[in-house]
Design a protein around this nucleic acid. Structure first.
Length: 643
DNA sequence: CTAGGGTTAG
């Protein structure tokens, strides 16, 4: 290799942007190095793998060369297989076959099969398997292992095992792959059987079992594997912690993280994102702050994923200023996830205009929004009542960014119209959607009918829901609320009766509140523990004071029976968020904010009580309900009663 | 000069 080529190669590998790459490429053409096929292979490698957004450029390059070799094709297939359009990998592969003079090798099949696994097409995957067979490469160690992975991904355990059984000398990696394939197909006992038959197990085999069980939600089995393994590495710990977080077992996520800090090496970034996700979901701000401290102290603050998890944690725990601080501390390494998390955070807190401003800043900075960025943006528009803006971005999404709207985006639009009272428009919008509406979409409209008291449309929408998800307790409660608001207690009773007859259980509402470093949970009406009695007593006192000093009158539409007014009042007054509020007023030191998390949507009466309490008691209250945040201060709420 | 199995945020 000449000194010039050598120098050019090192220049090439230092290129990290498409612009720099094209410049350097131009320079190479002038100096004549571009006729070297080894060099051109490297060039394609750099474009397809190392420089984000340069894949199309790599593809164009390949077709400029008179005689592209297998390496170049393989590299391009590899690049596309890991991209967001893995189907392109197959089309490049097909073009390679058509060329005639380049023959696919084991690399080609490994990459193209991996691509079919990534877009989960059993049909295409099988076709590639046949091609591999024709070329005598189907039992090649790497090709076969990728085939096992592909069949597993597509849920076809039978074929995965067939490929495995026909391998001449499967190595550990192949054994591990077939175990994962069994888990993907929900065949736990087969996975266990194969695992037990292994004569030699290394670390990874145990971790494969751990991952299989956590993904299946079998956390007890995962715990057992974890305790039985001879050695636990950082992947074992993070797999388990992430597993707890994903399955909503937050206390175990916290305690295993503490245990990890106590016994082992430093927690890695995956355990950190896992435990932060547990904080986000449960609203554990104080514990989250401790983790943030650990991140700063142990030098992890340069890792993008950890920063993203911190942004999400702070915004879901109600602390937007801290989320912004983390976001501002990573100016030149923000990923789409960082931008989207921040936009979603602002949106949840009703700062719709600010979310839109940030979105525009994002596109100006050169970052490319994806489908999820648009979900956050449309959500921001709908919660801030910005209809025109929402419509604009929805149309831009397709026109400018070439993102095909998914069902979630249509759902946001229905919410946008429904929330602002344009119920008929929302209905027509659903009828004109190019994809069939799901129950969630109709449910969104039913919710809007409920808050705007439109009985006729609500009944019509419920009819549609009956075809898709007839016995959803939330839908029945929503419809019953529509009737209750209109005073149609006979219809309310009818729904209630059918729920009892069909044994449809309402989702149990709960609210939690953090006092000191402890989380306290409340459910409606219960008086099991001392804290429940304490909360009920305090609540009586608060309600009395609100009546006398702020003219509070309870809103009773959320009651479920046609009973005496007094009894309805009693029912509504037991809502879990009120109990959590009363408990916090009694226990929290003066001047501290009250933060409540509720698993369902806050009811109208509770919302009113929160507003008045913030004024009469001079406290700030932050409630995170199923959909968004409500910050109550001095008698008003950040949602501007628009939720 | 390219690969296969286990953990990562919105």
């Amino acid at each position: 290799m000449s000194i010039v080529t050598d120098h050019c190669l090192s220049l090439l590998t230092s290129c990290k942007s498409l612009r720099a790459l094209t410049q350097i490429h131009g320079f190479f053409i002038k100096s004549g190095v571009d006729s070297d096929s080894y060099f051109n292979g490297k060039l394609i490698l750099q474009c397809a793998i190392s420089v984000p957004g340069a894949l199309p450029y790599a593809r164009r390059l390949l077709f400029c060369f008179p005689e592209p070799d297998a390496f170049m094709f393989n590299t391009l297939v590899r690049g596309y297989s890991g991209s967001d359009e893995p189907r392109n990998a197959v089309s490049v592969f097909v073009e390679m076959m058509r060329k005639g003079f380049v023959f696919p090798d084991s690399f080609s099949f490994a990459f193209v099969v991996k691509a079919t696994a990534n877009f989960r097409s059993l049909r295409t995957g099988f076709q590639m398997h046949c091609q591999a067979l024709k070329h005598g490469l189907e039992s090649h160690l790497f090709v076969a292992t990728t085939l096992i992975g592909m069949y597993g991904e597509c849920g076809c355990v039978e074929f995965a095992r067939k490929v495995f059984d026909e391998m001449h000398q499967p190595n550990l990696v192949a054994w591990n792959a077939v175990i994962t394939a069994c888990f993907r197909g929900n065949d736990f006992s087969k996975a266990r059987e194969i695992f037990d038959n292994m004569l030699v197990k290394n670390h990874t085999s145990w971790n494969v079992m751990l991952a299989g069980y956590t993904k299946a939600g079998e956390l007890e089995s995962a715990k057992r594997i974890f305790s039985e393994m001879p050695h636990r590495d950082d992947v074992s710990w993070s797999t388990l912690i992430v597993g707890f977080a994903h399955n909503g077992i937050f206390n175990d996520a916290f305690s295993y993280f503490r245990e990890l800090q106590r016994v082992e090496m430093r927690p890695n970034e995956v355990s950190l994102t896992g435990v932060l996700s547990a904080c986000s979901q449960s609203g554990a701000l104080e514990f989250g702050k401790t983790i943030h401290g650990f991140v700063e102290k142990s030098g992890y603050s340069w890792i993008v994923s950890v920063n993203n998890a911190l942004i999400d944690m702070y915004s879901r725990c109600g602390n937007v200023p801290m989320a912004r601080l983390v976001f501002q501390g990573m100016p030149d390494k923000r990923s789409v996830v960082s931008w989207t998390s921040m936009i979603a955070g602002l949106a949840m807190h009703g700062q719709g205009e600010e979310a839109i401003r940030l979105f525009n800043e994002m596109t100006k900075s050169g970052a490319t929004p994806d489908g999820i960025s648009f979900i956050s943006l449309l959500y921001a528009c709908s919660h801030a009542g910005l209809i025109k803006e929402g419509e604009d971005y929805f149309s831009k999404m397709k026109r400018v960014y070439h993102i095909e709207p998914a069902i979630e985006h249509y759902g946001c639009m229905v919410d946008l119209y429904g929330r602002s009272g344009k119920l008929q428009k929302a209905y027509n919008f659903i009828c004109q959607m190019p994809i069939p509406p799901t129950a969630i979409v109709w449910r969104t409209l039913l919710g809007a009918c409920s808050s705007h008291g439109n009985i006729e449309l609500a009944e019509q929408v419920k009819q549609r829901l009956n075809e898709l998800d007839p016995n959803n307790s939330g839908d029945l409660v929503l419809l019953s609320n529509v009737y209750a608001t209109a005073g149609k207690w006979k219809d309310v009773a009818c729904i209630r009766k059918s729920m009892i007859v069909q044994r449809i259980k309402k989702t149990t509402a709960w609210s939690s509140v953090e006092v000191g470093k402890t989380m306290y949970m409340f459910t409606a009406g219960e008086k099991k523990k001392g804290i429940d009695i304490e909360a009920h007593e305090k609540l009586k006192e608060i309600i009395l004071r609100l009546r006398n000093e702020a003219g509070y009158a309870p809103e009773l539409a959320s009651a479920l029976y046609d009973v005496e007014e007094e009894e309805k009042e009693d029912q509504v007054s037991k809502h879990s968020e009120k109990l959590a509020l009363a408990f916090a007023v009694a226990r929290l030191p003066k001047g501290e904010n009250i933060r409540i998390v509720k698993n369902l949507r806050i009811c109208r009466d509770c919302h009113a009580v929160m507003k008045l309490t913030s004024k009469v008691y001079g406290v700030e209250i932050v409630v995170r309900d199923r959909n968004r945040f409500h910050s109550f201060k001095d008698g008003s709420c950040s949602c501007r009663d628009y939720w």
